[in-house]
Computed example of a mutant assay.
Amino acid sequence: MVAGETSGDLLAGLLLDGLRAQWPQVASMGIGGPRMAERGFDAWWPSERLAVHGYSVELVRRLAGILRIRRQLRARLLGGDRPDVFIGVDAPDFNLGLEAELRAAGIRTVHFVCPSIWAWRAERIAKIRAACDHVLCLFPFEPELLARHGIGASYVGHPLARVIPLEPDRLAARRALGLQPEDEVLAILPGSRSAEVAYIAPPFFEAAARILRARPRLKILVPAVPALQGRVARAAREAGLDDAATTVLAGQSHAALAACDCTLIASGTATLEAALFKRPMVIGYRMHPWSWRLMRRKQLQPWVGLPNILCGEFAVPELLQDAGTPEALAAAVLGWLDARQGDPARIAALEARFTELHHELRRDTPRLAADAIRTLLGA
């Protein structure tokens, strides 16, 4: 298995639960993170070695090392004791090429998470067809799309929809974080990668400083990847956020989303988590200008945030790149906070739509994914 980044580690950990239920003695190895290691995964390299931020300077700097890891992994998988199946978990830029080479050499390949060809980079479909014996899809419309191109696929639901309760306990989350039931709480999630924090945290925190001036009693929670916690805390102080109002947490993103009234959040899997917690949100994103120009040319839909893509409308605001100024971000967040008092019907309508989405995505993902792999292997 190869899983990149925090979200891939989470997905792969849940998949390993399903595989172990089917095959209790299953041996798993490759590239992974701590959740996979908890399930007995043998990580030859840690998943953060693959984490980069778009078409960035960071990618150029790290590309040689990433390609070297892929060559070494390919040689190891094709030598001696070959695996019964290779499972690439997300990370399509790394995994699809590797999967194509392994498949050509006779190893069965599965890709877990259909690349978002329905949103951007539609040209990837040919690469997916060459690389994958089967695709495990998180969203219900994806298998039919892949089938039209001759690619086998199964809808297994989104595992986060089972991890996150249908009715999050806001009061319990607040007690756990030392907050009062009556507090007004904003969660800020500026991304989980180093380059994301560099580009996204400053405007997010400057927006938060503006919001705090308008609402001095506001409490701000900032869940941060533990390795980046100090850097995130420094960025918050540099933007003028005082420690009395702002708490930078080591992880605990789910606790922060459960506790908050609204979240200012970087585009990515975390936006789906916020939707499953039924929280109003403002989606923002920034990256290197060159990366942004490349990605915009490949975009197929008007939405970038997963909640908006799945709802088929701008259910929540998206303020991306140059549009994501501190002023605009602050105004959008204040719009949601004001709605809690002045327009509760707006909040209720959003929560109802996100509840529908939660039910649509809630499946026994570990079992369904393992069943699909068993069928592929004829085991």
Rank of each mutant, 00 (worst) to 15 (best):
D9N: 07
R363H: 15
R162T: 13
D338T: 13
T375K: 08
L337K: 05
E356F: 14
A236Q: 01
A275M: 09
L241A: 10
I31P: 02
L376R: 03
E327N: 13
H53Q: 11
R103A: 08
I31C: 05
T247F: 05
D242N: 12
P202H: 09
G40N: 05
D322Q: 15
T109Q: 08
L218D: 03
A275I: 10
R346F: 04
Q25D: 13
F314V: 01
E351W: 05
A172K: 11
R71D: 11
D93E: 14
P24C: 00
D371C: 04
A227W: 08
R39D: 04
R363I: 11
R76L: 01
A331C: 05
A161W: 09
V304D: 06
P143K: 09
R340A: 06
L361F: 11
A43P: 11
P226E: 12
I347G: 04
G13K: 02
L102V: 06
Q25T: 07
V333R: 04
E182R: 15
D261L: 06
D343V: 00
L350P: 01
V222P: 00
T263S: 11
G342K: 11
F41H: 04
L10A: 09
V232Q: 03
G251Q: 08
V135R: 00
D242G: 10
M287D: 13
A323K: 15
R74C: 01
E196F: 10
L272R: 12
V135D: 00
L160M: 15
V185T: 05
D243C: 07
P216R: 05
I211D: 02
T247A: 13
R82D: 01
S253V: 13
T365M: 14
E238F: 03
D364F: 09
V60H: 09
D84F: 07
A372F: 04
D133T: 06
D17F: 00
P307R: 06
A345E: 15
E327M: 11
P289A: 14
L329F: 10
G32H: 08
D243T: 13
G240H: 12
S291A: 15
Y199V: 02
A147D: 07
L319T: 01
E184C: 10
S116G: 14
A328D: 09
I309F: 15
R215M: 05
P366W: 09
A235C: 07
D133E: 10
A3K: 04
G18S: 06
Y199D: 07
P181V: 07
S194D: 12
A37E: 14
G150F: 00
Q301G: 06
L306Q: 07
R61N: 10
R293G: 14
L160W: 05
V113M: 09
C132V: 07
P366M: 05
P289N: 13
A208D: 01
